[in-house]
Each structure stands twice: as C-alpha cells, then as structure tokens.
Write a protein that binds this DNA or RNA. Structure first.
Lengths: 201, 201
DNA sequence: GTTATCTTGGAATGGTTATTCCAAGATAAC
DNA sequence: GTTATCTTGGAATAACCATTCCAAGATAAC
C-alpha cells in the first residue's frame, strides 16, 4: 500500500559526496544538496536522517568506493615496491590535476578539520588508516620476501612512514605543490627502502 | 584629543588565535570572540577589520610566534641530524599531549580546510612551508658537511621528505596516533638518511 | 571647563542555517 | 474505485551568522 521513493538514493549520495568533498562540511548547506540533487528537503531527512548522517554516509562512501579498491589492488599486487610506486604515482596524478587539486583528499581533510570531533567520523578515519597501513605493509612484505628490501628495513615501520607520506602529499597538493616535486619526494623515500633503487622502475 | 583604546590588542589576538586554532574558522563565531575576550563587537571591527582579518592575524601570529622560533633554532643548530631528531621529538611531544592533541597544527589544518581558498591564507601557508623546508635543508647541509649523511642523499630532496613527514605527524596525531608509533616512524626515516644511524642519538 | 575625536555598548539588520510540520500527491493492495 | 500508507512540496520555525549603526561615554588638548 505504501508509496515508493521517487528518486535514487545512490545517485543522491553521489552528489552529496562530491559536495561535501569539494566544499567541506560546514560550508555546504542542506539547501546546496537540495539544489544539486533536485530532491526535496523532507525526502532527504526522511531517507538519510540529517546533515550529520548525510556527511557520514558520504565519507564512508568515499572511503569505500575510492580508497578501498586502490588499497586492495596495492595489497594484492605481487610486485612489491613497484606497486607502491604506482600507488603514489596515481595519487599524485589525481591530486595535482583538475579540480581535485583544490579539493584534496576527503579523508585527509576530515582528519585535519573539526569533522573529526565526531566519534563516528573518527571511526571511519581509523578504519581508513588501518587499511592504508595494512596494504602498504603487505606490499613491503612481498618486497622483502623477494629480497629487494634493504637489510634492516622493517615492513611495519616503513608502512607507517609511507602512510604519513601519503597524508603529506594530500596536504601539500592542496597548497599547489607540483607533481614533479611530490614525485621526486616519494622516489627519494622509496629509494631508501630498496636494495637496488634503480630497479623500482 | 582622541580617546585611547580600553583593551590590549595583543591580548585579544592571543585569545583569537586559540579560538580559531581549537575550533576552526567556520565553527568559531564573532560572538565567541566577544564572549572570550570581553571586548565589544564594535571595538573588534574598528581595530582589526572583520572575521576574515581576525583569522588572518591569528594565523600569521601562530606561524610567527610558534613555528618561527622552532624553525630558526633548527636552521641554526650545528648538529645536523640530531637537531632534526629533536625537532620531531618536540613536535610529537606537543601534538600528542593535552588538548593540543585534539587541535592539531593550525597551519596544517588551514592547509586541509576551506581556509586555503583565500589567497591571503595561502600566502601564509606558502611562507610557512618555505621556512620549514629551508630549515630542514640547512640542517641537512650541515649534516652532509660533517659527513654523516649517507652517500647519494640530496639535502633538498630529503628536506621535502621531512616536511611532508611533519604534515603527516600533524594529521595523524589529531586522530589519536600514539607518540611512540610516531617516534618510531620518524626514527626510521632519519635512519635512512644517516651513514651510521646509531649516531643520531 | 570646554570641545573635538575617538571608543564603547547594545540594539538592529539582513541574511543564512538546520530542522520541522502539514496539507497535497502518489502509490499499490484490496 | 476505495483506502491506507508512504512520499513530496513548500512554507514555517527558530536559532544563529557577520556586519552596521548610532547614541552615550571617555579621553586629552586647549
């Protein structure tokens, strides 16, 4: 007997994610979401809750659908160090081109903003970081097993280094750092991990 | 003939800096500043301009008075790598203790927030980054002159690595990273720069 | 003391915010 | 077709925002 929804919640979340991503949480109004999606306020509140829940859904969506596959690919890549190099190449490419350069990384932005005062947001950030670190660690362990890691390098510790480096890239790219400079920086760190740096590709 | 100001602008900026630092720019209202300082709205606007100018003054103050001396000390320290190790030890100590752990670094937060859409804010961030990088570079050049740097390490490139690492520390400390984990991470990077890692202290 | 000039307090302004409410519309089972 | 139940549109709410304005107060030169 009930009526059925007249819009696609997934499509709405697509727009919401982009809005919160590019404009931040406190500068994006519910009105902006109404205007961008064409969905009425009442429907938004009835379907998702409020602004807080919309942001949380958008952040989880961003982490799941954008970072998730990248992390999985990195963790499952057999090549080790070249996989990490590819990860950073792709990251820098995305962060330094087009409008993405101005928005930065939604997760890193949440880290540094007032968003992370919310325990639920913090839980998302925590999970995201754990997955990033685990993927780096897996790639480093493969590299170590292949014997290409410099003696004394501990995968777990270097995974932390590379994770922090990724946050640094995300932060600086928003301030206009060039892809060349960021690439050189990343290469320097990867070189310090490898037995024969020239083989990272 | 004119009347004289009934409050101390420097003391007001102290409060303003802390307010914007801990609560961010968009979640801090002019009313909050009026309440915290006891200074009337009209006086604030007449003395400083508006909210934007107040934030800019606070950010410049933060960069000048907090980061400035630390950078200068690092650049002038003759020891090289131990000076960098001290820099990070102090940074981690500050970022992981008390309420500073929740606020993070005002400059890094500005990097990742909507604040950096403002060209004047960006100029402050740019200057701050240049000074950080230059200080790191100076310390590395001293280390290289002393012959403690691993062959092949380029001071300029490693300065970029350490700067990004500092941003990473600032980002992750706000999410609850432990000082021990951050310390180990930093140590790993510094070890990779040194000829004889055990001598960094 | 008088006067010119600045500061100050507090109200007022005009806009925006997230959220709620309710009547009107749409749907699908009966 | 009728009816129960959900969705929808749009107005209404109430709080908050940065900023402006002006009369009242304070100051220091004369």
């Amino acid at each position: 007997m009930p009526d059925v929804k007249h819009f696609d919640p997934e499509a709405v979340l697509d727009s919401v994610e982009e809005l919160f991503w590019r404009r931040g949480v406190s500068t994006t109004g519910v009105q902006d979401i109404v205007s961008a999606t064409g969905v009425n306020r009442s429907s938004l509140y009835a379907t998702f809750g409020g602004k807080r829940e919309l942001y949380l859904a958008a952040l989880r969506r961003y982490a799941d659908r954008r970072s998730g596959p990248v992390f999985r690919r990195l963790a499952e890549d057999d090549r080790g160090l070249p996989a990490i190099a590819d990860f950073f190449r792709a990251l820098i490419g995305v962060r330094c081109s087009g409008e993405y350069a101005r928005w930065g990384c939604m997760v890193t932005n949440a880290h540094a903003g007032t968003e992370n005062d919310d325990p639920d947001v913090r839980a998302v950030l925590h999970g995201h970081h754990d997955r990033l670190r685990a993927a780096m660690c897996a790639a480093l362990e493969r590299a170590q097993a292949a014997g290409v890691l410099r003696p004394g390098v501990v995968p777990g510790t270097s995974a932390d280094v590379l994770a922090l480096l990724a946050y640094g890239v995300n932060v600086r790219s928003r301030a206009g750092a060039t892809p060349e400079a960021l690439g050189d920086t990343v290469t320097a760190v990867l070189d310090s991990l490898a037995n024969r740096p020239e083989e990272i590709r």
